[in-house]
């Protein structure tokens, strides 16, 4: 902006209106461009540049430092032969499917429940949404305590005489993922509920009136009229929740540290460990590229549906 002001002052006064108009346009654009510089830099350097760098260097044999030696798909071959990575991908897939299905279904049902003209709606919404304001670290640590087999719910049940009751999800490598899912649902369903509720409320009230006049029961109205109308909100929510799942990291670190063994390891943790702890950059970058590919698999069909060629419905 300072430069622009200087330029304006150095311009001789007697110049006719035409060039000064041009000058004005130039000035105006300059200010906007300077203002947008952080955005342009973020896009070019971080989102495009850094991603491209990572993808390119995932084809090298970089160890603790990036090196230029091109090794083709060797890192990927090794990646898919590494039990820990394949396991972490499987864990994420199981977690992802379960938490996606449950957050969407439960979130929608909660929204329907909240939409029944209930009293104290604000109070209930506050209660359902507060976990979303918390850090994954906080969520993870609380549930770690609740699911602690020696002191948590299992002990309470044991003390009550239910000596066969088991709630030791986190210490059992077959069930630890379900523990993650429970904690994740506790934090995330309120968010989905709010989005779905906004979707429900955006539906024209006259649609409901028309359905009542037609004598269509409420459940059928939801199922056959309202849900199809909420397509946009549902898809947007799916994309947001889905891309959040791919990133899953904090919750695992706080709740299980990836254990027992590597039973609750996830790709994001694999990437972090290989990049920053084990000094095996090539592996870390290859794994992160696979995460990117996963997101693209979610994102591209969505972008195609939403912004692609004109819809013919």
């Amino acid at each position: 902006m300072a430069e622009a002001t200087l330029a304006a002052q150095s311009k001789p006064e007697e110049i006719s209106t035409r060039p000064s108009l041009l000058h004005n346009i130039f000035l105006r654009n300059l200010s906007a461009k300077i203002a947008a510089l952080p955005m342009v830099l973020t896009v070019l350097v971080v989102f495009v540049g850094c991603s491209a760098w990572s993808v390119i260097y995932s084809f090298t044999n970089s160890g603790s430092l990036p090196s230029g030696k091109f090794v083709g798909f060797a890192q990927y071959e090794r990646l898919f032969k590494t039990a820990r990575f394949v396991g972490s991908a499987e864990n994420l897939a199981l977690y992802g499917v379960l938490s996606l299905v449950f957050t969407m279904v439960v979130g929608f049902l909660l929204a329907v429940l909240m939409d029944q003209k209930i009293r104290f709606e604000n109070t209930f919404r506050t209660v359902l949404l507060y976990p979303f304001a918390l850090s994954f670290i906080v969520t993870g640590l609380v549930w770690q305590w609740i699911m602690n087999p020696n002191y948590g719910i299992q002990k309470v049940a044991f003390d009550l005489g239910f000596t066969n009751f088991r709630f030791d999800l986190l210490t059992n490598s077959d069930t630890v993922i379900y523990g993650l899912v429970i904690a994740g649902l506790w934090q995330g369903t309120g968010f989905v509920m709010v989005l779905m509720l906004a979707g429900l409320r955006s539906i024209d009230e006259e649609i409901w009136k028309a359905a009542r006049i037609d004598g269509i029961p409420a459940w059928r109205t939801y199922l056959q009229i309202v849900i199809p109308m909420m397509r946009g909100v549902v898809i947007t929510t799916l994309v947001i929740v889905g891309s959040g799942i791919v990133r899953l990291y904090d919750l695992v670190v706080a709740l299980t540290q990836g254990g027992p063994g590597f039973a609750s390891d996830v790709p994001a943790k694999y990437v972090y460990d290989y990049m920053f702890a084990r000094g095996n950059l090539g592996q870390g970058l290859a794994a992160s590229t696979m995460m990117l590919v996963t997101v693209l698999i979610i994102l591209i069909p969505w972008a195609y549906i939403e912004f692609g060629p004109k819809k013919n419905k």
């Binding site: 896009v43 989102f47 850094c50 990572s54 870390g284 590229t289």
Partner: peptide
């Protein structure tokens, strides 16, 4: 730039961390 920015928000952070 805006569209790339929006799509950028879906890129897993892990992809951009090291650079």
């Amino acid at each position: 730039f805006f569209v790339i920015l929006l799509f950028g928000s879906f890129i897993p952070y892990q992809v951009m961390l090291y650079p």
